[in-house]
């Protein structure tokens, strides 16, 4: 076989393989998207359609009954703010709405606190040489390699001692302390030329100005990645919420659905409505910020 011939057969083979792999990936993607499709359509199905032994692939009429049931009893205040000893209580709403408010508050607060603390810490770990830097960095790496769950029991007792048990802060603070964000932003900050920072210092800017005016704008893509990563992870983090939150008005949406399941374990219509409420907002956020998210995952892995 001459060389050009062999190249031709190679090309023909690779073309066939390309088409084959496209078909297989397409089928797999369909299977991966199916559970989500099943949640969303399931939440609009009638009881008969849910309970039928022959699956109803697409609801014949879109019923709101499942969502109505989810929202049926008004049992929790929309919010309660504690200010200077006064408690401001919002109107009484269905518990699921309160859970959504809690989840949004938790995710946004964790995200803001994580980004701020991680950007500051990542900047100095990347750009400053100081005593104890090596120790701090190796502690961070060690903590990241250990399973998060081993700290839960001591954390529970600590939160009880600090009177934070069954408050949303008991979930937020450990998320902020988790060092992935610092690790990620240190990687970003290392990519910024040190001369930029030094030039700014020589021009007489204070350390804080150097950080806010030079460093922060330059690591913005990293901060974006860190933000979206923390937001999605804290929205979906279940174990910590399960252990720290107990009273109905303090639950998050995923924990709330899980609790509902204990009482209505086969009312799949209701459970799908709850699941849709928990997952659709975060999927929309993911799709909008997808680019940053992918960047965060890959940057965090470099030298991982």
């Amino acid at each position: 076989m001459s060389k050009s011939n062999r190249l031709d057969t190679n090309q023909a083979k690779s073309k066939a393989y390309y088409i084959f792999s496209f078909v297989v990936v397409f089928i797999l993607a369909f299977l991966f998207a199916f559970p989500l499709y099943w949640i969303i359509t399931g939440s609009f199905k009638t009881k008969q359609e849910i309970m039928s032994t022959t699956p109803v692939w697409f609801p014949s009429v879109f019923t709101g009954a499942n969502f109505e049931k989810l929202m049926s009893s008004r049992s929790a205040p929309l919010f309660d703010l504690k200010l200077f000893g006064y408690v401001i209580t919002g109107p009484t709403v269905p518990a699921a709405l309160r859970w959504l408010v809690n989840t949004v508050f938790m995710s946004v607060t964790s995200m803001l606190l994580t980004c701020l603390t991680a950007a500051m810490a990542g900047y100095v770990l990347a750009k400053k040489r100081f005593w104890g830097r090596g120790i701090i960095f190796s502690l961070i790496v060690c903590a990241m390699a250990l399973p998060k769950q081993v700290i839960l029991i001591p954390l529970l007792r600590e939160m009880s001692a600090l009177k934070m048990y069954d408050t949303i802060w008991a979930v937020i603070f450990p998320i902020v302390g988790w060092p992935f964000g610092v690790f990620l932003l240190k990687q970003f900050a290392e990519g910024i030329p040190t001369e930029m920072v030094e030039a700014c210092r020589i021009d007489g800017a204070s350390e804080w100005r150097t950080f806010t005016d030079v460093m922060f704008p330059m690591i913005k893509p990293g901060v974006g990645a860190c933000a979206i990563f923390t937001f999605i992870n804290s929205w979906n983090d279940y174990f910590m919420q399960l252990i720290m939150l107990t009273s109905s008005k303090n639950l998050t949406i995923s924990l709330g659905i899980a609790t509902m399941q204990a009482e209505n374990s086969t009312d799949f219509g209701l459970l799908m409505a709850g699941s849709a409420l928990a997952s659709v907002p975060i999927i929309i956020v993911f799709l909008i910020f997808q680019k940053y998210f992918t960047k965060g995952i890959t940057m965090g892995a470099v030298k991982g």
Binding site: P35, I257, S275
Partner: peptide, 18 residues
């Protein structure tokens, strides 16, 4: 392929349970 991760463990578990 990333969707099942973003959907969240509770929602994913519920639908698989069904």
């Amino acid at each position: 392929f990333y969707l099942p991760v973003v959907t969240g463990s509770v929602a994913v578990t519920m639908v698989w349970k069904w």
